[in-house]
């Protein structure tokens, strides 16, 4: 049975084992490789996408759950918060190895969509599930504050 959903505004349909994690559908089937594999058990956040507007770890999301849903990956992320976050990320060169940064940016964007001007504590709480082994955390925190300031105008 094909499973249908929207990814980055495009209707997609896949015919795979319904237990397949969304992560592997995005990567192996749809070749949207910006969403990364880091742990497989929702510990690291590298696979974070937006599902119906909320952050979701795609590695623990069976594709059956995606039926009829609206999915956004790093490749299709857009809007004022996303633009501000990505610009802030570039401006202070947040990434080092870069592998976790898609997930970091998906979470940071969601945070700013919900809290326009987050405190350090808001940032720590939102980003607690996104591991960066290069420990770019100082700059992640700074970039989120910078993005919030940009959005204030």
């Amino acid at each position: 049975m094909p499973i249908s959903f929207t990814v980055n505004g495009e209707e997609r349909s896949v015919d795979v084992n319904p237990g397949t994690p969304l992560l592997w559908v995005l990567r192996d089937e749809l070749r949207l490789t910006g969403t990364k594999f880091g742990c497989g058990i929702a510990q690291c956040g590298a696979c974070t996408i937006h599902l119906d507007g909320m952050t979701r770890r795609s590695c623990v999301t069976p594709i059956s759950m995606a039926e009829g849903s609206d999915i956004t990956t790093i490749e299709g992320l857009e809007g004022p918060e996303a633009d501000a976050v990505q610009a802030a990320w570039r401006a202070i060169d947040v990434p080092q190895c870069g592998y976790c940064q898609s997930g970091q940016i998906m979470t940071a964007t969601s945070l700013l969509q919900q809290i326009a001007s987050p405190s350090d504590e808001d940032i720590d709480n939102a980003m607690a599930g996104n591991i960066c082994r290069c420990a770019t955390y100082v700059r992640i925190r700074q970039a989120i504050h910078d993005a919030a300031k940009t959005l204030e105008g």
């Binding site: 949207l32 790093i74 490749e75 990505q86 570039r90 947040v94 990434p95 898609s102």
Partner: peptide
């Protein structure tokens, strides 16, 4: 490499 590491490319 900062740009490509913020848009998934």
């Amino acid at each position: 490499d900062s740009s490509a590491k913020t848009d998934g490319s």
